[in-house]
């Protein structure tokens, strides 16, 4: 299975097109927050941008603390979210080590599902869906591939 990766964030211009696409297409909202990928400036605009999203843990701590089974481990990393099972307890967000889960004021959670809907809206090809197995191999050999 593929997971969302952000291998070329040094190209990011901070347009938020990716997170706005996620909020729009997956969640039918206009928002900077209710999205599986969220763009923040890293120490002000002069130092570029960082993408906050699910890094596809093999054993997701968010799923471990979920009391209702709404978040379940996904094959090859990350989680599957079953909205109907969620009791909005909010335990998942603080369990995530990289702050990838956003919870809105109604208690609804937003996390990357690794669907790739955001990718076509990035003007600089910063994002990529990659096979988890390939990615882990790539990381282990410390290779950086150019964009296609």
């Amino acid at each position: 299975m593929k997971i969302l990766t952000t291998p070329r964030m040094d190209r990011c211009i901070g347009c938020h097109s990716c997170s706005l696409a996620c909020a729009r297409l997956l969640h039918h909202r206009l928002s900077w927050d209710t999205a599986g990928i969220r763009i923040h400036s890293s120490g002000g605009l002069t130092t570029g941008f960082t993408a906050v999203h699910c890094l596809a843990c093999a054993s997701p701590p968010c799923a471990e603390v979920c009391p209702t089974g709404a978040l379940q481990p996904r094959r090859d990393g990350g989680v599957v979210f079953k909205k109907k099972l969620c009791n909005r307890c909010g335990a998942c967000a603080p369990a995530c080590p990289v702050d990838a889960i956003f919870i809105d004021r109604e208690g609804e959670l937003f996390v990357c599902l690794h669907c790739g809907l955001c990718i076509p809206f990035c003007p600089h090809d910063c994002l990529e869906l990659a096979e988890a197995s390939d990615l882990r191999l790539r990381l282990s050999s410390n290779l950086t591939e150019p964009a296609s």
Binding site: I13, G14, C15, H16, S17, L20, W32, L45, G48, F121, C122, P123, H124
Partner: peptide, 14 residues
């Protein structure tokens, strides 16, 4: 050095 963008604009004219 680089380009930047207004939020909601993929052009990046800055």
């Amino acid at each position: 050095l680089r380009n930047s963008a207004c939020s909601g604009c993929p052009v990046g004219c800055i």
